[in-house]
């Protein structure tokens, strides 16, 4: 790109920005719910300024040169923030592609009498803009990957709450599919909590597990065995009829493991294992009256 083109583009900066903005806002894909027009205007102006500066530099042809560094930074920032805000890849790349369109038009006007120069300058400008567009896509994907990673780790944390239901009794409601990676997290969380609370009984409730195949069963058996080695007993509860059917059809041996249909019956079983007796207080007695609960 020669100095003349750079100067010509710089001279028309106001016009370019306006057309670019118009292009962006008229695009049906733009999500004005995700970003206000004023914000977009400010972001675009900042970007255009840096871009024109780079065009005017001595290494304008080389998109990897130092002059383009601030542009890469701004672009990455824009794409990553757009990825996080939930823009689609199309919306994100439209940002740079719509600018390319405006720049082409401006150059066309400038060189309308000399097609050879126009051709050369357009090619050169295209090359730079294409490379910038690649940067956008790349960082967009990176941004999305970050979101996915964060969600994955959040999910595995959220999905394994270990609840202390009684002194010496823990409950672990498992929701979702149990794969090897998740079992590891679940198992570790449960065993750590067993040590921390000195609980002798842990109830693994699998009401929220959609299917139990032999792999899931194996993971459950491993968890129970590890807890036993530490001196705690596990009860598996929440076994639905269809799960009981698959377990038997698959020939999975759960005879060495305490199983209960519901969490309530597992809790009852825990009480008897720990010699705890829970009785209903007499209706008229002072213990059962509501005042004692502080209502």
């Amino acid at each position: 790109m020669n100095k003349e083109s750079a100067a010509a583009l710089k001279g028309k900066k106001k016009q370019i920005l306006d057309t670019w903005m118009a292009n962006q806002t008229k695009d049906a894909a733009l999500r004005d719910d995700l970003m206000s027009v004023a914000e977009l205007q400010q972001q675009s102006e900042e970007f255009l300024n840096s871009l024109l500066k780079a065009f005017a530099s001595s290494q304008a042809e080389n998109p990897d040169s130092a002059g383009y560094e601030p542009i890469h930074d701004i672009l990455s920032e824009i794409s990553i923030s757009r990825a996080r805000q939930g823009f689609s890849p199309r919306e994100t790349s439209a940002y740079i592609l719509s600018l390319k369109e405006v720049l082409s038009q401006t150059l066309e006007e400038r060189y309308k009498d000399d097609t050879t120069v126009l051709y050369r300058e357009i090619i050169s400008m295209n090359k730079i803009m294409d490379s910038l567009s690649l940067v956008t896509t790349e960082t967009y994907i990176k941004g999305r990957e970050e979101v996915i990673l964060r969600q994955t780790s959040e999910m595995s944390e959220i999905s394994t709450p270990v609840i202390r239901v009684w002194e010496g009794i823990l409950a672990l409601p498992i929701i979702g599919t149990l794969d090897s990676a998740r079992t590891q997290v679940v198992m570790e969380a449960l065993l750590e909590e067993i040590v921390a609370t000195g609980s002798r009984i842990a109830i693994l409730d699998i009401s929220g597990v959609p299917t139990v195949d032999s792999l899931v069963a194996q993971h459950l058996i491993k968890t129970v065995s590890a807890a036993r080695l530490m001196g705690a007993e596990c009860i598996i509860s929440g076994i639905r009829a269809e799960i009981a059917q698959t377990i038997v059809h698959l020939g999975i041996d759960l005879t060495n493991i305490y199983t209960k249909a519901t969490l309530a019956s597992a809790l009852k079983m825990s009480f008897s294992m720990l010699n705890i007796q829970v009785t209903r207080a007499s209706q008229n007695g002072p213990i059962g009256s509501k005042q004692n609960f502080g209502f």
């Binding site: 750590e192 590890a226 530490m230």
Partner: peptide
């Protein structure tokens, strides 16, 4: 009676 086995040790033994 073996007491106080660490969780990491228990997981490893099962594996």
């Amino acid at each position: 009676v073996v007491v106080g086995m660490q969780p990491a040790v228990a997981i490893t033994l099962v594996e």
